[in-house]
Design a protein around this nucleic acid. Structure first.
Lengths: 231, 231
DNA sequence: TAAGATATTGAAAGATTGTTCAATGGTGGT
DNA sequence: ACCACCATTGAACAATCTTTCAATATCTTA
């Protein structure tokens, strides 16, 4: 998993290369897969396969079949299977960066506050549900240095710093703790969601509730301890 | 992933078959791998490999190499790779069942309360950290019917029912919600833990805090809604 | 149009995988 | 000592996987 340096906001890698659509349009839909570059179709298919079957569990032929291209095209565009993974992850990083940047651009002030950022990221994830599935798998892989989570953390650091500078985030708390809070709360719910469904599915259909309860993930300071009890 | 019926507490599958050690001893240490059955060594190695590299990502030869046996032994003992996975998961179910049963046996009353059960499970998981890693991966796999999560859910249902009958759990709340709360709170923290470490690792060593904050996963009723704000 | 660069194909190679199986070793019973 | 039974081995096999590569198609540019 080689890390590409350069600016994170760099070109979104072929998405909408033929049609001159803006990056905002690419985040939505994804319905018409026809007029996309072969490179983009391969990347989309790879995201789909990796998200649902895992990296090791997806043969290259499954990607090329879904993308509708020949097997040799992957190594031509991405060098190797690992290269395809890098491209997928770089694209995801771009999505997050674009969502955060969009939040700033829509804000009346130059820097959006936490609520606007959360909303922008949530909107982006809603448009790309496969990204959620991919992140879910990525979270539990061994913390490969320079992996996707690391890069998204760096993005969140920038975001928190910008909010601090704009007075939207308190500066008395630990910077690390702020970033941890944002990331864990955002990703934690997404990662844990399938657990909720799996447990509920273990009940007979009759007893199963119509609407599942909501998950909340909190981060508490180490010293703040309190015993708790339930059920 | 074929599900074995029978009693969950059934034989723990060869652990300590040669030495007459009690099952409690087997849960700890795992340091001396020498005097275990080949079958048990293969199962342990499979747990280790599946937990760290994933099911699809582990070749059978990686398991046999760690176990110190020949390649043919796996199919002889477990039939297939899938069979090895079944054995691993059945062993994990046995661990949970033993921990819960142990909690009841140690309790002054015939049925232990929630705190004692949580403690027993936590102790068991502390002795078998690989089980945590395995569960973490299992959570996000597609909810194959009869999978590990389903079986652990069934175990939790029994546990909650026993506590209800003993008056240790309220009977006015939804039974499904009680089970969901127990499982999500217990497993949620374990699943999310590496995310915490990965995010913290994204910071320069100097800024990284010495002790990481604590995670809390809560389950809220669908109707109870409240807006929140942070950072 | 001509020519050069790039995209795309699909067969082939080479490595790795899960499974099978005949052979060997060991253990206990009669 | 013999025999039946189970554990264990490792080579062989067939399938599948990733990568390579020469050939062909398509696009770009002058």
């Amino acid at each position: 998993m080689v890390v590409m340096e350069e600016s994170v906001m760099a070109q979104l890698d072929g998405v909408g290369a033929m049609t001159e659509s803006s990056s905002a349009e690419d985040l939505e839909a994804a319905g018409e897969t026809a007029d996309l570059t072969s490179r983009a179709r391969i990347r989309n298919a790879a995201l789909h396969q990796f998200a649902t079957r895992g990296f090791a569990g997806t043969p290259l032929r499954a990607i090329t079949a879904e993308a509708g291209v020949a097997i040799g095209l992957i190594s031509h565009h991405f060098g190797s299977k690992e290269g395809a993974r890098d491209a997928v992850e770089q694209w995801i990083v771009g999505l997050f960066a674009a969502a955060l940047g969009l939040a700033d651009r829509e804000s009346e002030e130059s820097v959006a506050d936490a609520g606007a950022r959360d909303a922008a990221v949530a909107r982006m994830l809603g448009d790309n549900p496969l990204v959620i599935d991919y992140l879910r798998r990525e979270v539990l892989e061994q913390p490969e240095d320079g992996g996707l989570i690391t890069r998204l953390s760096a993005l969140t650091v920038e975001s928190v710093d910008a909010m601090r500078a704009a007075g939207h985030a308190s500066t008395d708390r630990d910077r690390v703790e702020q970033v941890l809070t944002v990331m864990v709360r955002q990703l934690g719910r997404l990662v844990l969601q399938p657990l909720l469904h799996q447990v509920a599915a273990a009940f007979p259909a009759g007893e199963r509730p119509t609407s599942l309860p909501e998950l909340t993930v909190e981060v508490r300071r180490p010293e703040a301890r309190r015993d708790e009890r339930d059920s």
